[in-house]
Simulated scan of single mutants.
Amino acid sequence: MKTIRNERGITLIEVLAAMAILSIILISIMNFFPQMGMINNHNKEKAQAINTAKLLLNEWKLDSNLIAALKKEEPQPADWPGTIPTEDIDGDGDEFYLFTTENPRAEIKIWKEPPNNAVVEVPAHEIQIRILNDTGKPISETYGYIVVK
């Protein structure tokens, strides 16, 4: 029977090298966790904004005072429900009413006329709802039509 005489084990340098390699790997993996948390918060905020925009769109589409104001040729400030819009013209010459709300913080645009390329059987006004964050940057946006019969 042959005996092994040179059984040394692991040296201190090998242990330190292994720990250094493992530390580098663990530190690089740990950098992903704060990033994933930030992305999750962003996605949560966006999902809430999408739901809020859909709810606002439904509220505005069903508002009888708003529909009555849109039926008029020249609506007056007293005709509008709640906040009075500011009239605006965007870059392509389309005129719209611009409403703002604070809770939730949103911009609501309602175009005065149907889109130029639309075949209109029933008068409808395009509505755009943008949910804004605290700095005024849009989080979510949705579109729809308010049917005026």
Score class of each variant (00 low, 15 high):
residue 83 T to W: 07
residue 92 D to G: 03
residue 70 L to T: 01
residue 70 L to C: 08
residue 78 A to P: 04
residue 13 I to C: 00
residue 44 K to R: 12
residue 126 E to A: 10
residue 61 K to N: 08
residue 127 I to A: 06
residue 46 K to A: 13
residue 104 P to L: 12
residue 147 V to T: 15
residue 30 M to P: 00
residue 118 A to L: 15
residue 142 T to V: 10
residue 149 K to N: 15
residue 133 N to G: 06
residue 121 E to C: 04
residue 53 A to T: 02
residue 120 V to P: 06
residue 42 H to F: 10
residue 111 W to K: 04
residue 39 I to E: 08
residue 26 L to A: 14
residue 110 I to D: 00
residue 67 I to M: 11
residue 44 K to Q: 13
residue 11 T to N: 06
residue 29 I to H: 04
residue 68 A to V: 00
residue 102 E to T: 08
residue 116 N to F: 11
residue 61 K to I: 14
residue 110 I to P: 00
residue 68 A to W: 05
residue 56 L to G: 04
residue 95 E to F: 08
residue 43 N to S: 09
residue 94 D to V: 04
residue 31 N to F: 05
residue 94 D to Y: 10
residue 148 V to F: 09
residue 69 A to Q: 08
residue 49 A to G: 03
residue 11 T to Q: 01
residue 98 L to I: 15
residue 108 I to D: 01
residue 24 I to N: 03
residue 65 N to M: 12
residue 31 N to S: 05
residue 89 I to W: 07
residue 134 D to C: 03
residue 121 E to N: 13
residue 73 E to N: 15
residue 96 F to K: 02
residue 77 P to Q: 10
residue 23 S to A: 15
residue 47 A to Q: 11
residue 27 I to G: 09
residue 135 T to E: 14
residue 7 E to H: 02
residue 115 P to M: 13
residue 149 K to P: 15
residue 90 D to V: 06
residue 56 L to S: 10
residue 17 A to N: 02
residue 146 I to K: 14
residue 139 I to Q: 05
residue 63 D to N: 15
residue 75 P to Q: 03
residue 32 F to W: 08
residue 74 E to Q: 09
residue 30 M to H: 06
residue 105 R to C: 05
residue 17 A to I: 01
residue 111 W to E: 03
residue 7 E to N: 00
residue 23 S to P: 03
residue 123 P to D: 14
residue 15 V to T: 04
residue 104 P to N: 12
residue 25 I to W: 09
residue 27 I to A: 13
residue 43 N to Y: 12
residue 67 I to V: 12
residue 135 T to G: 05
residue 3 T to R: 10
residue 12 L to V: 04
residue 23 S to C: 09
residue 1 M to Y: 06
residue 118 A to V: 05
residue 41 N to E: 10
residue 75 P to I: 04
residue 69 A to H: 05
residue 128 Q to R: 15
residue 115 P to S: 11
residue 54 K to V: 07
residue 130 R to M: 10
residue 147 V to F: 15
residue 94 D to N: 10
residue 73 E to F: 05
residue 108 I to W: 01
residue 132 L to K: 09
residue 126 E to I: 14
residue 94 D to Q: 12
residue 70 L to M: 13
residue 143 Y to V: 02
residue 91 G to T: 03
residue 101 T to E: 11
residue 113 E to G: 01
residue 55 L to S: 11
residue 61 K to L: 06
residue 135 T to I: 14
residue 50 I to P: 00
residue 73 E to Q: 14
residue 31 N to E: 06
residue 133 N to A: 08
residue 1 M to S: 09
residue 82 G to P: 07
